[in-house]
Simulated scan of single mutants.
Amino acid sequence: MSDASIQPQAQIGEAGFGDYFALLKPRVMSLVVFTAFVGLMAAPVPVHPMIGFCAILFIAVGGGASGALNMWWDSDIDRIMRRTRNRPIPSGRVERGEALGLGIALSGFSVVMLALAANILAGALLAFTIFFYVVVYSMWLKRSTPQNIVIGGLAGAFPPLIGWVAATGEMAIEPWLMVALTFMWTPPHFWALALFMRSDYDDAGVPMLTVTHGRRATRIHILVYTVLLAALAVGMGFTSIGGPVYLAVAVVLNLLFLLGALRIARRDEADSEADNFAVERRFFKLSLLYLFLHFGAILAEAMLKPWGLGGWA
């Protein structure tokens, strides 16, 4: 690793509130909060507003704790990758020990408080999610297998299940469908990012699929997962959490997503270098909207049901 690949570090002790907040990965947290909120609102039982607010708050804190622990563990490779080298730890604004302490403290706080505010099962699911993201994904899978993002994506898929369980106190098939939607969306979303950020993963020694199997294989994987994802997403429109609004959104979005995956699959190395991965970038940007709009449609169906308008009934 050359010195040129590492930015000069700032003086330790210059951290402000924004730096500690950045440790919590607020953009990732926003997805956690939204999908958990949809899971809570789609549940078939009314939830007291204060309990609902506390549940979402503590799920968000748990998601932030996972982010802090991930940044603590990955600070060495974050320092190498262009996309992450300005994060609080590699830039030198926050010490690794501070991130570790913050992550552990917030993990314990969020799990205990969710169990007290909602129920023990919801707290246990949050604890498992934090463990899976930090230990199974960050510490084990990420640096050991090209299937890292496939298996590890399960951690980011659990929030709607936690929200549902916080409301009902029990499991059901509907939140697991929402988990499956997020789980199947994760690989094409991150592999599209890896296609135009491949040098980062090469430099950091992370065995992303683009590094171990090449770009062509990655493009085929994106197409296969997108086909499976589209079947799942559209099929959910005919379940109890779906309905006409959701189905219309799902059909349009998945047609666009399939077209984007087909364009990626047809690329070759020369084309990708020539246009600076424009096709992959467009697909990645669409994938950012994809999950939010699907969950937004599930939320719309849930909000319409009390008026007799949501779902197929």
Rank of each mutant, 00 (worst) to 15 (best):
F196K: 08
A117L: 07
D203N: 13
P207G: 09
G260N: 12
L125F: 09
I220D: 02
D271N: 12
L31D: 01
Y201R: 06
L228C: 13
S75Q: 15
T210S: 14
R215S: 13
I149M: 11
R263N: 12
T84P: 02
I222E: 00
R215D: 10
E98S: 14
G52V: 08
Y133I: 07
T35L: 11
G16P: 01
M208D: 00
A300S: 13
A166E: 02
Y225K: 02
I241F: 04
L256E: 08
A313T: 12
V47A: 03
R281T: 00
Y290K: 00
R216D: 15
R27V: 00
A36I: 01
V134S: 12
F292R: 10
L223E: 05
D76I: 10
T182M: 15
W73K: 10
D268K: 02
D271G: 14
N86R: 03
R282W: 11
S287I: 06
F158P: 05
A180H: 05
T35H: 07
F132P: 09
S75C: 13
R96F: 06
L309W: 14
F53E: 00
G39W: 04
Y225R: 01
Y225E: 05
F283S: 06
A42N: 00
A302Q: 01
E174R: 07
S110T: 01
V111E: 02
A4Y: 08
L229K: 04
F183Q: 10
E174F: 05
M303E: 12
L121Q: 12
S138L: 04
Y133M: 07
S2V: 07
F158C: 09
M71I: 10
A233I: 01
V47M: 06
Q9P: 05
F17S: 10
R85E: 03
A157N: 12
C54G: 08
W164S: 05
S287T: 14
P207N: 09
R198H: 14
P90Q: 12
Y225Q: 06
G235P: 02
G237M: 04
L247D: 00
V33C: 11
M113H: 09
L259E: 14
I12S: 14
E301H: 04
M184K: 05
F257D: 02
T210D: 03
P306A: 09
G152P: 05
A157P: 11
V234H: 01
H221W: 02
A217T: 15
F132V: 07
L141I: 07
F37L: 15
A313R: 15
N254C: 15
L228P: 06
R143V: 10
S272V: 07
G311H: 08
S287G: 13
A300Q: 02
V47F: 03
R85P: 06
A15H: 08
G18Y: 06
M236Q: 02
R282L: 11
L177D: 03
F34Q: 07
Q147C: 01
T168M: 04
G108Y: 06
S240G: 11
L23N: 01
P46Y: 03
L141R: 00
S30G: 13
V111K: 04
Y246T: 06
V134C: 13
N148E: 05
F183H: 09
L177P: 00
A43E: 03
Y20M: 11
T239F: 03
G243S: 11
W164N: 03
W72I: 05
L232F: 03
V94E: 01
P26C: 11
